[in-house]
Design a protein around this nucleic acid. Structure first.
Lengths: 151, 151
DNA sequence: TATAATTGTCTCGAATTCGAGATAATAAAA
DNA sequence: TTTTATTATCTCGAATTCGAGACAATTATA
């Protein structure tokens, strides 16, 4: 195979992989969203709540870094969770610029009930691959992600 | 390993895969978006334009099916592309409910210039994996996607 | 043929996300 | 210590996407 064909093949394969990747994640996200929506939350709200549920109080700023949303969006999401009484804001006594998001008792109860079911649902959604295939895919996706990030 | 541990391992792995998948695609999308944004288009606009560039005139309705966006969103996107003189609407003479989106001469010129570069950029973004790894990943992602879709 | 169901496009309002910039607090530098 | 730079959060307006429903045209059914 000459160089030009090789290049074209690489292009085709990459384009194909991009589409398949996008589509697969769309299908998966749709299922995950179904699982979450009936709890009255959207995926972002759930992700933020879960972060605080499992990692404890977080400065609002940190939340955005971990869940990968802009700071102005976190304000919005935390507002919504606060209105639902799942989180509350708590000022930091040492640094008055900082506001922590803290889970409420109601929020904890909610997650105690819901999170195990959520993990189970994710497991079912990903049951198209076996344990080993998942491990391989995780590795490959990391490679791909790191590389793209490094550009 | 007993059943409970097995179940937990499956849950952990699936959760992990979900996160890695989401993150990897985020990194990739960011790069692809950079490539497209400087053309004055967003990814949806580019996808719609590309569809019509490579597959010819499409009823507006079909576009949504292929690019996976809601019908109300296509109207919006086609409006934008029309304002940029890259597409135009053309009524179907046989079925007056249907409106085709047609690429303009300017749109064709634009894509002739831009599409090869775009493919090249995608290739570079995906250069973290070799040809064979890509093929394997495409297969596995299809399995995963089909399975999630079938639920 | 008249009626009902379906199809294709669009309008509208809501939800979500972003970026730019405002504000206040803290940290660093002169 | 004053000045400057950085940090954390929030406000605001814009962009994008969606779903519900309007409307017209077509197709299927009685």
């Amino acid at each position: 195979m000459n160089n030009q064909h090789k290049n074209e093949q690489e292009e085709q394969l990459s384009l194909k992989l991009f589409i398949v990747l996008t589509r697969a994640l769309e299908s998966i996200k749709r299922r995950v969203e179904e699982d979450i929506k009936c709890l009255g939350l959207n995926p972002t709200e759930f992700a933020v709540l879960e972060l605080i549920y499992s990692k404890g109080d977080q400065p609002i700023q940190k939340i955005g870094q971990k869940v990968l949303i802009a700071s102005s969006s976190i304000t919005y999401v935390v507002d919504k969770l606060e209105k639902k009484n799942l989180l509350k804001r708590k000022p930091c006594p040492k640094d008055r610029r900082i506001t922590y998001a803290t889970i409420t008792e109601e929020g904890t109860k909610f997650m105690d009930d819901v999170f195990p079911k959520h993990k189970q649902a994710i497991k079912e959604i990903f049951a198209g691959l076996d344990v080993n295939e998942k491990k391989v895919m995780i590795q490959q996706l990391k490679k791909l992600g790191y590389y793209a990030e490094s550009l």
